[in-house]
Every structure is written in C-alpha cells, then in structure tokens.
Computed example of a mutant assay.
Amino acid sequence: MVGSPRAGPVVLLLHIGFVLIGIVNTLLGPILPLLSARWRLDDAGAGALFFAQSAGAMVGSALSGILIKRFGFLPPLVAGFGLMAVSTACLGFEPWVLGVLSISGTGLSLGLTIPTINLLISELNIGRRAAALNLLNLAWGVGAVSGPVLVPTLSRSVGFTIALLCVAAPLIVIGVLVRRSSVVLPVAVKAKGATSSGAIRLWITPYALLTAALVFVNIGTESATGGWIASYVQRLSPSSQLSWSVAPSLFWAGLLAGRAAAPFVLRRVRETRMVLLGMFVAVSGLVVLLLGTTIAPVLIGVGLTGLGLAPVFPTTIALFTERFGHDASRLTGTLFILAGLGAAVFPWLVGLASSHYGALRAGLVVPLVGGLVMIVLHAAIMRTLPSRK
C-alpha cells in the first residue's frame, strides 16, 4: 500500500513505464507526414489512422476493467507492455495492412496500461490523488515531449525501423520487471457484491454524466491538436523541417510544464478553479494558433494550448475517484473508453473538415470548439459540487 516500503519500487517502475507510454501514445502525430507519404493518404485517410489507434484504445480500456477485477493490476500491465513493444516494432515495416494493425495494436496496449496505472496510483495515494495523478502524467509528458524529437533523430541516424525497435526494447524490459514483481497491491474492486444496476445508478447522476462528456471532449481536443500540429506546421513552412518536428514537442512540453506546476498550484488554488483556468489558457492558445500566419505565433499558440490542457484530465480523474471512492474502480473503465472515443473522433473530424474545405486550418477549428465546450461542461460540473466553495 502507500505506506509499504515494497510499493516504492513498483511505483517508480510504473512512472518509468509511463514515460515510455508517453512516447508511444504521441508517436503517430510526428510520423504522420511520413506515413501519409508512404501510403499516399489524404487528410481524411490520415485521420482514419488516429481512429484505428483510438478504436484499439477503447477496446483495451474496456478489457482493462474486466482484467483488473479478475486478475488484479499487474497482469493487464504485463500484457499491455508486451503488446505495445510488438506493435511499435512492427510499425516500422512497409505494408499498409501491417501498419494499420500495428497502430491498432498500440491503441489496444495503451487502453490496457493507461487506465490501470492511473487507477492504481490513485488508490495508492488516497488523500492526495490530484497531486499524485498530475505527477504520474508529468512522467507521461516527459515521454510525449522527447518522443517527437527522439524518434525522428534516431530515424535519420539508423533508419525508421531501427528507431522503433529502440523504443520497443525498453517496453519489453518494463513488462518483464512488472511480471517479476511480487509487491502487494490494492485490490482493484473492493465492492465485490456490487451489481451492474448499482453502477448504472451512479452513472445517471449529473456529475458522472457531465464528467464523462468532459473526458470525451478533453481527450479529443488534446489528441486532435497534438496529432495534427506537425502536419499543420509542415504545410505552413514546408522548408523548415525543424519547426514541424519540434511543434509536437512544444505542445507536449506545455502539458509537461503544466503538470509539473499543478501540485504547487494546488497548494493555493482549488482543483476545480485550476482546471477552469487551464481551459481558458488552452482556448487562448488555440486562437493564437489559428490566427498565426507565421511559424512563431503558431508555436507560441501550441505551447499555450498544451499548458492549458495539462491539468484537466488528471485532475478530473482524481476528483472522480475521490467522489465515488471504491465504486470508482467500476466506473473509470467507462471513462477511459470515452477518452479513447474522443481520441478517435476528434482527429478524424479534423481530417474530414480539412479535406472538405481544402485547408487544415479549417480542420483545426474542431479542437477550438472542443475547448469552448469543455469550459461549459466544467462550469456545469462545478455547480454539482456545492461543498467545494
């Protein structure tokens, strides 16, 4: 448990694993121009790749809840890290069918690992869930920032396939170490006599429904922005390869900085206020990004958007698990499925809008609308929490 000296090494291992998950989770965006050229995809076809990955993530999220309940936390993580390694390695091969299967496989592995680790860290840190989950997602941000630079740099030195193998190898190591761990961990589902009708009653509360909608829109907005920004900057300045390869890193660096600052901000500001402030910053960043006609303002807007979105997801999950206590283990799987659905739908909509209007700028209005909807949803959530004054 949290006070157990044996829990510390596993927690450290999971944070290292989350760095690697951050690399894999954000890999598709930076390599999208390469994949689009290799498979001759238009924006609608490229958007379908995000849908394939996120569809896998939804399936994995659904399975994670079942597997946690049946086997505990560790077996889903072992399976997830193993599948992630294989899928990442296979993405380097040429055939389109194998590539799509690999992208779907990475999504499935992300669905198995991300909800499991988030729930486990939350259960280990009762009383400081928001700070602990922001710290965990800070580790994810380290991978998200380094991946868009690391993989292209390695690709230029040793080739694309070898670069992906370099990402896959440590995933195997993490999976093996998790498999060999014998640390006593919290039981995932403590209310064993709970029924599905009880879960339905919890879900039909205004707070749960609004939170579900917020998670869907938040992850969709985050995925659409981070996934398409490299392609957007590439078209804005085709001759500047450095700019379009760095742009995704700036977005994830904003998330990294925001999640690093969140535990300190929470000492002075309530969780709900911090999230609302972040949403306004994100919307401002998206406006700057869309209005910018040169690289500099676009990159500034990218960074601001990442900074603003940083505290939204981990803090929302922390508040959700705090609100529902042990019942949260029965509900968070659905939240992560909705997160996967948002990550599938929003980037796909960006691609459709871009192909329809003939401009990726038009497609990126989708995450701007998402940011505005998030503000409305969170304001409604705050009204369901009268005790947080």
Rank of each mutant, 00 (worst) to 15 (best):
G3P: 10
F18I: 12
I21A: 12
G22P: 01
V24M: 07
V24P: 01
D42E: 14
A46L: 08
G47P: 03
P76S: 12
G80N: 07
G82N: 04
M84D: 08
V100T: 12
I103Q: 02
S104M: 15
L108V: 11
L112K: 02
A131E: 15
A131H: 00
A139V: 00
V142W: 04
S146R: 00
S146K: 00
T153H: 10
I162D: 13
L165V: 10
V173E: 06
I174G: 02
V178F: 04
A188H: 02
V189G: 07
K192I: 09
G198W: 13
G198F: 10
I200F: 14
T205H: 12
Y207V: 08
T211P: 02
A224K: 01
W228Q: 08
I229S: 03
Y232T: 07
L250I: 15
A257Q: 03
A260E: 05
A260I: 02
A262M: 14
F264V: 14
L277P: 00
G278Y: 04
G285Y: 07
T293I: 00
A296V: 15
G301M: 11
L307W: 07
T316G: 05
T321W: 06
G333C: 03
I337M: 13
L341A: 15
G342S: 09
F346I: 01
P347S: 11
W348S: 09
L349Q: 05
L352F: 11
H356D: 12
V365W: 11
M374Y: 04
I375T: 13
S387N: 12
